[in-house]
């Protein structure tokens, strides 16, 4: 292989870091006590973890293969644009269904705004 050793080390560190962060996000999804806390794990940590993995893959295929590889950039851009949108829509659905938060939440989720309530 024609990859320099230091670049290979960077790729390996990126892959390992991405997998660790994504596993932490999924652990948060599995273990947190209520839905609003569970929303934090996947939508922040998992996106960053998958982003690190995609960056490592981008480096690997750009150096070893033939030319720059575009698909990873597309996937990363798409994920980073759509992850906040889907998190927002899930939080709105949870508010709409009145999913209860844990009792010791200091500022419990409010009811939806006027336009939503009168439907």
């Amino acid at each position: 292989m024609g990859i320099p050793v230091w670049l290979e080390a960077v790729i390996a560190i990126l892959l390992l870091l991405g997998a660790l962060v994504a596993a932490l996000g999924s652990l948060g999804l599995a273990r947190m006590p209520d839905f609003y806390m569970r929303l934090h794990g996947p939508t922040k940590a998992s996106t960053l973890g998958v982003g690190c993995t995609l960056l490592g893959s981008l480096l690997y295929f750009s150096v070893s293969g033939e030319g720059f590889s575009v698909q990873e950039v597309l996937i990363t851009l798409f994920l980073f644009v759509t992850a906040p949108v889907s998190a927002h829509m899930m939080a709105r659905a949870a508010l709409h269904r009145r999913v209860q938060a844990v009792a010791k939440t200091t500022q419990p989720p409010r009811e939806l705004g006027r336009g939503e309530r009168n439907k």
Binding site: L29, P42, S46, M90, R97
Partner: peptide, 21 residues
């Protein structure tokens, strides 16, 4: 709740992308 299942499915999708990569 149903919303938890939707969140689980969404995260499953994102992690499946990483596995494919």
């Amino acid at each position: 709740d149903v919303v938890d299942r939707i969140l689980g499915l969404d995260t499953l999708n994102i992690n499946a992308i990483a596995v494919i990569v």
